Simulated assay, not measured.
Amino acid sequence: MDVPKLLEAASLLVREEIATENDITINDVWDYLTHDKWEVALGLLEELGDVHPLPLSFWEALATAAEQMHLRNSAAWCRWRCYETRNGIIRADLTLHPTGESHRQTPLPGNGVLRPMWDIGNRTPAGESVLNIAQLWVEFTPSQGPGGRSTVRLAPLDPSQWQHLQPSQVITMHEDQTVGGTAAILEIQPPTTTTAA
């Protein structure tokens, strides 16, 4: 296990001498590491990304540490956060159509492996709809079943095609010719780094 990678990520935490009661510090992470609680330390560091934006190097260090610990889901999540740091965050409230109204009969995987097509309003010069591809990450659950509703994160194949989206805009998801679900945009955040994707 590469302790330096976790410590490199932890070095971005609040210094002990200026920490408030609710801040996570490098000493908190170090305490878990010294007690061989690697996964707890990693999980603690992963949660920091929801508090404030963190640099690409933070997510890269965590992804490397997770890969070395053979924690596939954590590694995938940290790589996802690397993508979002470079390209921005798109969060949406996705409702899948129930079985019988779309071709999906089983839950869709929530860990970023599905790459459905989306009608986000783009058109050809002739006025026909253009579908754009984006990976899908379902928040807080490993999958989403037909008829279900979840908050999702989208990672577009071509982020430049998605720049016109606004909160509350509704887009549709397609896994084939039929509409598989609708999503209302909840949040759009710009990239936090200028590093190329």
Rank of each mutant, 00 (worst) to 15 (best):
residue 76 A to K: 15
residue 47 E to A: 01
residue 116 P to A: 07
residue 55 P to Y: 04
residue 32 Y to R: 09
residue 27 N to V: 14
residue 89 I to H: 11
residue 162 W to K: 08
residue 67 E to H: 08
residue 177 Q to L: 05
residue 161 Q to S: 02
residue 121 G to I: 03
residue 133 I to C: 03
residue 98 P to S: 05
residue 144 Q to N: 03
residue 23 D to N: 06
residue 1 M to C: 13
residue 165 L to M: 04
residue 72 R to Q: 07
residue 85 T to P: 15
residue 17 E to C: 06
residue 175 E to D: 11
residue 91 R to V: 14
residue 124 T to W: 08
residue 181 G to K: 10
residue 78 C to S: 13
residue 130 V to D: 12
residue 185 I to E: 04
residue 144 Q to C: 13
residue 170 V to H: 05
residue 182 T to Y: 05
residue 13 L to K: 02
residue 185 I to T: 07
residue 169 Q to N: 06
residue 16 E to Y: 02
residue 23 D to A: 06
residue 179 V to I: 07
residue 128 E to I: 09
residue 35 H to E: 07
residue 165 L to Y: 01
residue 183 A to Q: 12
residue 25 T to G: 01
residue 105 Q to G: 12
residue 51 V to G: 15
residue 192 T to Y: 12
residue 11 S to W: 01
residue 138 V to H: 00
residue 87 N to I: 09
residue 194 T to F: 06
residue 138 V to G: 04
residue 18 I to H: 08
residue 195 T to R: 02
residue 74 S to H: 04
residue 60 E to D: 07
residue 141 T to E: 04
residue 69 M to G: 09
residue 193 T to I: 10
residue 121 G to K: 02
residue 71 L to E: 03
residue 108 L to A: 11
residue 154 L to V: 08
residue 51 V to T: 15
residue 102 S to H: 00
residue 103 H to R: 11
residue 94 L to D: 04
residue 12 L to I: 11
residue 53 P to C: 03
residue 178 T to Y: 01
residue 97 H to F: 06
residue 99 T to L: 12
residue 72 R to C: 03
residue 75 A to E: 00
residue 68 Q to D: 09
residue 162 W to M: 05
residue 33 L to G: 11
residue 191 P to H: 03
residue 113 V to S: 10
residue 78 C to R: 14
residue 124 T to E: 05
residue 186 L to G: 05
residue 130 V to C: 12
residue 43 G to A: 00
residue 197 A to L: 06
residue 165 L to D: 08
residue 48 L to A: 10
residue 95 T to A: 01
residue 98 P to E: 02
residue 138 V to N: 04
residue 33 L to S: 11
residue 27 N to Y: 07
residue 154 L to C: 09
residue 179 V to C: 03
residue 46 E to F: 11
residue 52 H to V: 14
residue 148 G to Q: 01
residue 196 A to C: 10
residue 18 I to K: 06
residue 32 Y to L: 06
residue 73 N to P: 15
residue 107 P to D: 05
residue 57 S to M: 04
residue 50 D to S: 04
residue 184 A to N: 12
residue 58 F to Y: 00
residue 96 L to S: 06
residue 63 A to G: 11
residue 167 P to M: 06
residue 74 S to P: 15
residue 167 P to D: 01
residue 50 D to R: 08
residue 12 L to P: 15
residue 83 Y to E: 12
residue 85 T to V: 15
residue 3 V to Q: 05
residue 113 V to W: 12
residue 56 L to F: 00
residue 82 C to Y: 07
residue 128 E to G: 13
residue 136 L to A: 03
residue 97 H to T: 15
residue 11 S to R: 04
residue 138 V to K: 07
residue 25 T to E: 04
residue 139 E to W: 07
residue 21 E to D: 14
residue 135 Q to S: 13
residue 129 S to M: 02
residue 77 W to E: 00
residue 148 G to C: 06
residue 173 M to Y: 12
residue 197 A to R: 02
residue 127 G to H: 10
residue 130 V to S: 09
residue 27 N to F: 01
residue 7 L to M: 11
residue 87 N to W: 00
residue 60 E to R: 06
